[in-house]
């Protein structure tokens, strides 16, 4: 009797989970893969085949865009870690009790402001008639307005800006749990600041670092607004290709193939990152 109730409640709890994962994650992805393996031979006539993937390999623009998206996303992830780690360490370990809460709140509050508004803000600051250019004209540093938009540096800065809080927040929670005595012990044993950082702090923070990197990398590689708005028409971001196939050309078969390629590529990078750092998905992203 007791075990029957237990089993029934387990089934009732499992049902929403299973429906969610099966109907909205598993089934759509299987459908996407099947669609990507269909070739259009004539209007409304399809054949099974790898044509969409062969097209991808034969057209350098496509795979160049994917490689470019991947390498720029890795760069953005690295920069976000480099810039974000000292901020997280300051908030978790150096700031006094009161300013610590305030600083962390300052990071949490803008976390959910839309990418669109962030990019809009950068446009107003950086475009030819924007604040930065006007200011430089006014100081006399330049004689003609400068266009800061539509180049790769701006896209990278904008992407780092959009994702960096997703790096800092998990790092703060991880570093917060570290005992100060560990750092002091490192210094007492004669370690320099750099040694303590490398041998004690970074190994301790590794789950947080990896978790932040995974989320940031995925957000960057899958981002659409920031590269389009800050990079202009020629930003060559892979999500733009997917959008183009789906919406503009109405070529869903090819778009599905591109979607699968993006997913496979980003998963491969994340898998390699996990292997290299010896972490697992369960003890990183799941904890944050």
């Amino acid at each position: 009797m007791q075990s029957d109730i237990k089993r029934l409640s387990l089934i009732l709890l499992f049902a929403p989970f299973a429906l969610w994962i099966f109907l909205l994650i598993a089934l759509p992805h299987i459908g996407m893969v099947i669609l990507s393996l269909r070739e259009k031979v004539a209007p409304r006539v399809y054949e099974f085949g790898f044509g969409n993937y062969i097209d991808f390999i034969q057209e350098p623009i496509y795979w160049n865009t994917l490689l470019r998206t991947g390498s720029m996303s890795i760069l953005v992830t690295f920069l976000a870690l480099l810039i974000g780690f000292p901020i997280a360490y300051y908030i978790a370990k150096i700031a006094g009790n009161r300013s610590k809460g305030a600083l962390f709140l300052l990071c949490l509050i803008p976390l959910w402001v839309s990418d669109l508004i962030r990019a809009f803000g950068w446009i107003l600051l950086l475009r030819e008639t924007g604040v930065a250019s006007s200011f430089l004209l006014w100081t006399g540093a330049i004689n003609e307005p400068i266009e800061f938009l539509y180049n790769d540096v701006t896209v990278v800065v904008g992407l780092v800006y959009t994702v960096i809080l997703f790096m800092i927040v998990p790092l703060v929670s991880t570093l917060d749990g570290m005992d100060d005595a560990m750092v002091e012990a490192g210094y007492n044993l004669g370690g320099s600041g750099f040694t303590v950082l490398r041998r004690i702090i970074i190994p301790y923070a590794m789950p947080g670092i990896v978790s932040g990197c995974i989320v940031v990398f995925m957000l960057t590689a899958g981002s659409y607004l920031t590269p389009i708005l800050l990079g202009g028409k020629n930003s060559s971001w892979f999500t733009e290709q997917i959008y183009d196939q789906f919406i503009t050309r109405f070529n869903w078969e090819s778009g599905a193939a591109f979607g699968f390629l993006l997913l496979a590529f980003t998963s491969l990078v994340v898998w390699l990152g996990l292997k290299l750092t010896g972490q697992t998905l369960a003890n990183t992203v799941a904890k944050s």
């Binding site: 989970f17 994962i21 909205l24 994650i25 089934l27 759509p28 992805h29 459908g31 996407m32 669609l35 995974i214 989320v215 995925m218 590689a221 899958g222 659409y224 999500t239 997917i242 959008y243 789906f246 869903w252 778009g255 599905a256 979607g259 993006l262 997913l263 980003t266 994340v270 998905l281 369960a282 992203v285 799941a286």
Partner: peptide, 21 residues
């Protein structure tokens, strides 16, 4: 782990796969 996965799937791909289905 399956429960965590949707968070790291790019949003564009969730969008197109659900549209296709």
């Amino acid at each position: 782990i399956i429960m965590i996965l949707p968070l790291v799937i790019p949003g564009v791909i969730l969008g197109i796969s659900i549209l296709v289905m």
